[in-house]
Amino acid sequence: MKSRTSGPTTDLASDPPTDVITSPESAPAPRPKSGRSLGLKAGRTMHAGPWTYIVLALFTAVSLAPLIWTAIAASRTSGRLAQTPPPLWFGGNLFKNLERAWTEASLGDAMLNTTIVAGSITIGTVLFSTIAGFAFAKLKFKFSGLLLLLTIGTMMVPPQLSVVPLYLWIADLQWTNQLQAVILPTFVSAFGVFFMRQYLLQALPSELIEAARMDGASSLRIIWHVVFPAARPAMAVLGLLTFVMAWNDFLWPIIALNQSNPTVQVALNSLGTGYIPDRAVIMAGALLGTLPLLFAFILFGKQIVSGIMQGAVKG
């Protein structure tokens, strides 16, 4: 998913249709002209007042606190963590603990593996969810209602229980300790399909598809030129959620993989060893395991921020 970074001329050319895309069926707005001029403001015409910032700051503080405390704990010693009150500011052991965690858990290989795993799952989920969600939202076909119910139904199977039969299945395929054992079972997601369907129901006007059809566009072209642009913010959010989920998943990877070919969450297990687990080093490992996610945040975050309309004119 590359952002629209082509030159200004192409952007102008693509302006009208993107505006149309964003207007839902019910929108009474006269278009495309007024839509186009207002499109520059991207739906966020209201400026935030001070209260908005205060509420958001509070919410953000609560959200971030455990993560920040992880960093504080990682900068201390295990003994200090046992004392009350717990440390509330950074100590001097951060780099020592980070280094120990990195080498003891051999996180280098694990990071590469997890990037492959989480990246593949994200690509698969976003791609297949978008097209399936589009079909469920906007195309009429036999059994579509039933198939949609079936899709949602698959979400209802508790994952904790699938572990044993899935292991037997993976063992049959001789995939134990190989990355595809953790990639393929979560390569698609019912959550994603349902999410995309609900989103496109709202965000993608049916007239747009009809118009494209009248122009003789094939389904693939419609996916590429109509659905993907309209779905971009949702694809970015889904991509972000999926990436984080895949990165932090541990129940199944611990069972399917071992430390000769680990993901980060599997590798981090080697830190809690010995009768006296060093909590500071464990926290350092947890911190290291989370850092790559921050990069993913920035990568996907930009996509979410620059919503469809804004993206069209930003260049």
């Binding site: 134990t176 595809q180 393929l184």
Partner: peptide, 11 residues
Amino acid sequence: LLAGCSSDDDG
């Protein structure tokens, strides 16, 4: 990527 990981060593 998928093809690549199937060629990884099996433990």
